[in-house]
């Protein structure tokens, strides 16, 4: 039997790693993270039942964005701008070529 993949999508893995790395670098304590994440899950789960896949990591992402904005590690506007820059990069890069920001 093939083992299930640890992560369903690459961005789940990337987000997970980013969070673990920041925790280990001392940017926040894990119990604090778990409290915040638990609160986001609870909020997201009010209207519908979360399936533990994409919606779980969406709640994770929102928690990390908010946390880093609060600590000043990343500004909300800068995040939006960078997201837009990556989107533009994907849209202008021919299929199959590496996507870069420049």
């Amino acid at each position: 039997m093939r083992p299930e993949p640890a992560f369903e999508a690459p961005w789940h893995a990337q987000l997970f790693a980013l969070t673990v790395h920041l925790n280990e670098a001392g940017h926040f304590a894990w119990p604090d993270w778990a409290d915040r994440f638990g609160a986001t899950l609870k909020r997201h789960g009010v209207d519908r039942s979360l399936n533990g896949g994409d919606d779980y990591f969406l709640a994770w992402l929102e928690t990390l964005e908010t946390l880093l904005t609060e600590t000043g590690a990343a500004e909300a506007q800068a995040l939006q701008d960078m997201r837009a820059a990556w989107e533009a990069a994907y849209l202008r890069t021919p299929h199959g070529a590496p996507v870069t920001l420049d």
Binding site: L58, A74, L91, R92, H95
Partner: peptide
């Protein structure tokens, strides 16, 4: 014609990673 556009959360994760890397935090 262009690369597959990643989903919104995937782009947001990339944005986070880029900014934190540029700041030397990651």
């Amino acid at each position: 014609p262009h690369s597959l556009l990643p989903s919104d959360p995937a782009l947001r994760v990339k944005a986070l990673e880029t900014i934190l890397t540029q700041k030397g935090l990651v």
